[in-house]
Structure formats: C-alpha cells, structure tokens
Design a protein around this nucleic acid. Structure first.
Lengths: 198, 198
DNA sequence: GTCTATAGTTGGATAGAC
DNA sequence: GTCTATCCAACTATAGAC
C-alpha cells in the first residue's frame, strides 16, 4: 500500500530486522518475521534483497559492535587519567546494562561470522572498526589527561577490547553486576599505571 | 540393527552430536544430522531423548568450556613464576590452535545459552566450573613457584577468564596468531607482577 | 527395540494476478 | 511495485509395522 523508493524500503526492512534480532535473537530474524515486523508482505523483502543472506549482511553492518563512540563523547575536557578512566568505565557500564539485548546480538553476530562465510568479511570489518575506535579513545583520554602511554597503542587497544568483550560475556552469562563493574574498574587501574605525565 | 542399552546409545548419540556441532556449527546439529552421523535412524534419537532440547542439553554438558585442565596437567613441578606462566600460556595457545572448531563451538553454546532458557542453566554451570578450575590453576601455579597472590583469588580468576575468552574471540575473528599469543603473554607478565615470594 | 512412513510446521524463494 | 498463492526443502515429532 505504502509505496516508497527501494533504498528507503531497504532501510526500513533493516531496521525491522534489527528490532527482531535484538529482541528474539539472530535466528529469529527470518525473512517472514522481518516482513511481519515491517508490516509488509513476504514478497517485498525478496524484492528488496537478493536473498536472506543479503538481508543478514545489511543487518550485520548496522549492529554497533562496541560502545566506544558513546564513551568518547562522554570524556571530560580536563581530568586526571584516573578520574577520566573511572568515568569512562561508568559510561561503558551504563551502556552495557541499558542495552543487554544489543550486546547479546553483537556476540551472536560475531559467532555467526565464524562459520558463515557470507558474514565473515563483515564481522572482520566491524572488528577492525572497533579497534580503530578503541585507539581513538585511548588517544583522546591521554590527551585530556595530559599523559602519554608507555606501551604501544596497538597491543594495548587489543587488550582493552579483549577485556571488555570477556567481561561482557561473563556478565551476560552470570549476571553478576558488581563483579563485572569491579573487573572493568580493575582494568582501568591497570591502564592508569601504563601512563606518564607529558 | 546393533542393539545396545539406552544409556550406551545416548552416549553414542551425544558423541555424534558433538562431532557434527564441532564441524559444522551448533545449528547444524539437527536431530537428522545427528542420526545420520551416528548411523541410526531418525526414530532412534527420539527414542533415546525426549526431544531435541534434551539432546542439545546433553551435548552442552559434554562441551569442554575451557582448557584449564590441560594447562594444569602441563604445569612443571618446580619453576619460577615467570617460567611457569610462560609455559602455561604456550600450553593454552597450542590447545587453542589445535582445537579451533571446539573453541568456536564453546562460544556458540555460550551465546545460545543467553537466549535459550533450556540451555541457560547448563551454560551457567559450565561457567562456574570454569571459574573453579581457573582458581585451581592459580593456586597450583603459585604452589609450584613458591609464591603467593597479592590480590584476592576470585576477582583475579574472573579477570583471567575474561582475558582468555576475549583474546580467544578476537583470534577466532581475525586469525592474528602473533597478536593473540603476544596478548596472552602480556597478561601472564601482569599476573607475575601480582605475586610475592613465600 | 528398531525401523519405515508420514504427519505437521516452518522458512526460503518464486510465479503470476492486479 | 505490491500482494496473494504456491512450491519446495528441511526440520521435529509420532504412529505403527516388524
């Protein structure tokens, strides 16, 4: 009934797919479920996407793999490195708690990409993007605190992503808020120890 | 054709399910695929298990969530903490590289447990078991090196599992051997710094 | 206890009316 | 461009022969 350009329709469908996947898991994001969620008929989805794989790939590119961007936005203009890191952890932690479903979806997608060749490239690209954003965060937080890192940024950023992912997964499994939050703060203390005033 | 007690048959089917899931992913472990892999007819599986969920739960309990046990076995009788940790990382790293499929399956199961209520309990139990084994490892390695930990064991063990899981996931995604191995060794150095002679 | 046959569902994909 | 109708494949599950 509601005609619209294919490009717009695709956006709408990807949004619907995201809603379904976030709420009920990536396996629930079937062509049928997405069509229903978007309020269009089954044929419309097949008209806008070659096949389910293309829909999933479009979905994958819209799933935010990390919360680094939000954390960067919340950085103070001027603070000690300890205070800045503490704030960053609290921002990250709030984002995790408020978006549990999105976190799960992100892990689901990552794991799906390990077997599904159609998703592998996208997941790898997302991961590379995470690292770029992570390095940006580390650079920025050093700037506002007027410190510099005493170790190479690349490996440091990798460790940060590994730690955040690891605690995220553990928290999703056991739901122990204080353990997760405490663990992240512990890593922040470790990070603070790897800086020197500049 | 080959009659056998239900208990044995169940074991055989779970083994077949493990093979299928490890090779082609948990989603590929359908009742049919398992029956084919085991060389029995479809009905046999339904005869031995209430439904697919019960089969999956039996499978989940057989998936080794961590390699801690192997690492503990490979501990030396006597060594400096740095040497012992380095050896432990190398053992873990070899185990990861040689069992990529099993690692992926472990992550698949963990993620599946986040949505599937039938699997949640089992995944949580496995995770608790991982922590117990992890704490055992930390205790043992301190013993053989004649050191003690300067921080509480519980949170320390949590950080270890988070770091190993995080690096494992990153390595599965991007396949960067040296980055993963280096990152684990970096964490081992961090651990060594949290001990004092006893 | 084990097999074949089949019911009943779900989901991807397409054809054809409008 | 959009919708309905339909096909086909894969899956879980069960009934009933042997």
């Amino acid at each position: 009934m509601n005609r619209m350009p294919v490009a717009d329709r695709r956006q709408q469908l990807v949004g619907a797919a995201l809603t379904v996947a976030r709420t009920h898991g990536i396996d629930a994001a079937t062509v049928r479920a997405v069509a229903t969620q978007a309020g269009v008929s089954l044929g419309v989805v097949h008209y806008c996407f070659e096949d389910k794989s293309e829909l999933l790939r479009a979905l994958a590119q819209k799933v935010p793999g990390d919360a680094s961007a939000q954390v960067i936005d919340a950085l103070p203009d001027d603070a000690t490195i300890v205070d800045a890191l503490t704030l960053a952890v609290e921002t990250l932690w709030r984002s995790m708690r408020e978006n549990r479903d999105a976190r799960i979806l992100s892990h689901e997608l990552t794991v799906a990409g390990l077997r599904d060749d159609d998703l592998t490239d996208i997941v790898q690209t997302q991961y590379a993007h995470s690292r770029a954003t992570g390095e940006l965060f580390l650079t920025r937080i050093a700037d506002v605190s007027q410190v510099e890192w005493t170790v190479p940024l690349g490996p440091l950023c990798r460790s940060m992503i590994a730690v955040v992912d690891g605690y995220s997964l553990a928290w999703l499994v056991d739901g122990d808020d204080e353990a997760a939050r405490g663990g992240l703060h512990g890593y922040a203390r470790y990070l603070a120890g790897l800086t020197r005033p500049v």
